[in-house]
Amino acid sequence: MPLKIRKTVQQMVDEANRDIETIPVADAIKLVGQAGITFIDIRDPRELWREGTIPGAINVTRGMLEMWIDPQSPYAKDYFQTGNKFVFFCAGAWRSALATKTAQDMGLTPVAHLEGGLGAWKKAGGPVQKVEPKR
């Protein structure tokens, strides 16, 4: 018998987008390198190697996000305790909407996500940094 889901991914993304801040690409491009702004790339490392990333972005894979945000977790990362504004992004803005909503629900503020993801960023001519696989 096929799975009967209660909510589609699209419904979840739409709900998240109603509750979070979305930054238009043109505005986000102006934030690169600014003090107090941290871009969080939640894509898989293989995506970074193929597509590059926003200069200075920190890669936090979606699977570790909650553990790295929570200061009580043994996996907590200090950069989430800086008080910076965090701008989450992914390839097309679905994963980042869900990640931003999760981070906000956990109490991380201020948080936002990039409208259209890295795809929209590249179309708008935003700077992209090459990422090499770690050996």
Rank of each mutant, 00 (worst) to 15 (best):
G107W: 10
T38W: 00
G126W: 07
R6N: 05
A35D: 11
D105Y: 13
R135N: 08
D70N: 12
T100R: 09
G36T: 15
A16Y: 03
A103Y: 01
G56L: 00
R135I: 13
T61W: 12
T22Q: 13
G126N: 14
P55A: 02
K123W: 00
G107K: 07
F89W: 07
V13N: 05
G36A: 11
G92Q: 07
T109M: 13
G107S: 05
G125H: 09
W94F: 15
V25N: 05
L114D: 04
S96A: 08
G125W: 12
A57Q: 04
P24I: 06
T61L: 11
D70T: 10
G52S: 02
G63D: 00
M67Q: 07
F86W: 03
R6K: 13
C90P: 14
N59T: 07
D27S: 11
M64G: 01
E51V: 06
P110R: 00
I20K: 01
I5Q: 11
K122H: 03
Q129L: 08
T102E: 10
G56R: 00
E47Q: 14
M106D: 08
G52R: 04
Q34N: 05
L48H: 03
V9C: 11
R18I: 06
M1Y: 11
D19T: 10
T100N: 11
M106K: 11
Q34W: 00
G117W: 02
P55C: 01
G117T: 07
N59L: 04
Q81F: 07
L98Y: 03
I42M: 02
C90V: 12
R50V: 09
P2Y: 08
P110K: 06
I37W: 02
I23V: 15
A76F: 02
V9S: 10
M67G: 13
K130P: 09
P71T: 07
P2M: 04
E15A: 14
G119L: 10
Q11N: 03
G33Y: 04
E47G: 14
W49M: 05
A16N: 13
P24D: 07
K85I: 13
A112Y: 00
W49G: 04
R95S: 05
N84H: 09
P45H: 10
A93C: 01
A93R: 04
K101N: 10
P127N: 08
T82C: 07
Q129P: 06
W49H: 11
V32P: 02
P45C: 03
Y75K: 11
M12P: 05
V131T: 14
A76N: 08
R135M: 09
E132W: 11
T8C: 04
G126I: 15
V87E: 08
W121A: 00
M12S: 15
K77C: 01
C90T: 09
K101Y: 01
F88I: 14
L114N: 03
D41T: 14
I58Q: 08
V13Q: 08
K122A: 10
E47W: 15
E21A: 14
D14T: 12
Q72T: 14
Q72W: 04
